[in-house]
Nucleic acid binder design. Sequence first.
DNA 1: GCCTTGTGCAACTATTTGGTTGCGCATCTG
DNA 2: CAGATGCGCAACCAAATAGTTGCACAAGGC
Lengths: 109, 109
Amino acid sequence: MSNTSERELAGVFAALGDTTRLALVTRLLAAGALTATSLSEGQAITRQAIVKHLQVLVAARLVVHERHGKEVLYAVDPRRLEEARAFLTAIAEGWDKALGRLKSLVEAP
Amino acid sequence: MSNTSERELAGVFAALGDTTRLALVTRLLAAGALTATSLSEGQAITRQAIVKHLQVLVAARLVVHERHGKEVLYAVDPRRLEEARAFLTAIAEGWDKALGRLKSLVEAP
DNA sequence: GCCTTGTGCAACTATTTGGTTGCGCATCTG
DNA sequence: CAGATGCGCAACCAAATAGTTGCACAAGGC
């Protein structure tokens, strides 16, 4: 019923559905490739917690990781974000109708 | 640091981050205002489970509910979806840079 | 007035999630 | 080589989630 499977899509949204991870994504986008350790510096939560969040993001394929010598660099893969946006745009076609229904809900039969 | 608070936004994504709820949203968008009971008919899961999911969607303000006589009608509020899409579009400004970094990650210093 | 239909509430269970601590191993650096 | 730095388990814990069942109550239809 969809090109990108609904489960995958839900996975992407779920990955974004946590303030910590949302912040990680924006930080990664802003700063480029970073290590888990540098991401956790000055943060209230542990490096391990950050690593777990990064693993969730990697599992949703929103983030790519690459080992480089001693450290592992994480970076956002924008293509997945694009897919999520494409979905929202796609169902946007129904929005006009939906808006009309919101109105008739308030008036109502 | 953002117009729509990051917590609210994460809430919207979290609400969409479940296959059942994602399906509910698309069904509601396609069919218009529906009751929890009609949404649960022919479904593998209980009406009560559906109601709980709908409450999550209402809490995220993705869905509006309105009592009408005996039944309660649920409908998608497209404005919240629009906000989520706006966020993804907003950070899209960083995507070119991010793409460049993906490349340099693979090549690497 | 009675039966049906749709909702609402509560209690309970199992699994997932977000987080911690502790430790061992690998890899640079002096 | 020795120490520092960064990463990767694994065990464990508390709270949130997704789901169930059971029942009571309100609103319509006949």
